[in-house]
Design a protein around this nucleic acid. Structure first.
Lengths: 108, 108
DNA sequence: CGAACAGTACGATGGCTGTCTAACTTCCCG
DNA sequence: CGGGAAGTTAGACAGCCATCGTACTGTTCG
């Protein structure tokens, strides 16, 4: 009951897929926010990232990130707690996440 | 006559756009090939990258890379000589290109 | 119990994108 | 000059994708 979601193994992480997941501004903001907050619930991420989208759209973005192997999701009561898979990403694509997080934030 | 193509300034490079450009396997292969070969013509890149697509599709991919600011194109007679914009990419997104080039090559 | 809350699932929709063929422009070279 | 080589452009087409509203499931709490 702790966790039941589909997420790829470390060795299965695909670079094109990871890059595609990160290429959307909303998801990029999500990842940045997650890097600052640490584990947090969907609604919290959406609020803190300043994303003005519907709940279903947010859910969609989080699914893309999860299925690309960028995040991990744990069920906690009514909430889903999401974390960045830093270790796996660093192991498979060294320097990539740091480069993305260190890059200048886009102008709105 | 040396050059007449549209390519963004260093400061204008957009991370989502760069990531989107790199998220296609054909373009990723193109960038890897370009990193090994140095400046080279479109046909040469296509051949060395092992890309089995039409000329127009290749032209399309090279345009995406150019307009994202990842490559520079110089006209040389009948050919277009393409190079990676390593300096600009490194300056604006430190570590990103290295991480992408250093990542494991995907299984076909 | 019952209402409000946290998210997901499902369609629907409009826009973007990778691909191709065909036609065109330049340029090189014999 | 004339043919072939190197790419680009235009147009068409199929598939994917970001977005939304609505309906649904499960949870928390008064």
């Amino acid at each position: 009951m702790t966790d039941e979601v589909v997420q790829p193994e470390r060795a299965e992480l695909s670079l094109p897929r990871v890059l595609a997941a990160l290429s959307d501004p909303a998801r990029l903001a999500t990842v940045r926010t997650l890097a600052m907050l640490g584990e947090s619930a969907c609604g919290r991420i959406q609020h803190d990232a300043g994303l003005d989208v519907s709940k279903s759209t947010m859910s969609h973005h989080l699914r893309i990130l999860r299925e690309a192997g960028i995040t991990h999701t744990r069920v906690d009561g009514a909430r889903r707690m999401v974390t960045l898979r830093r270790d796996d990403l660093d192991a498979r694509f060294p320097g990539l996440l740091d480069a993305v997080l260190g890059a200048p934030v886009e102008a709105r």
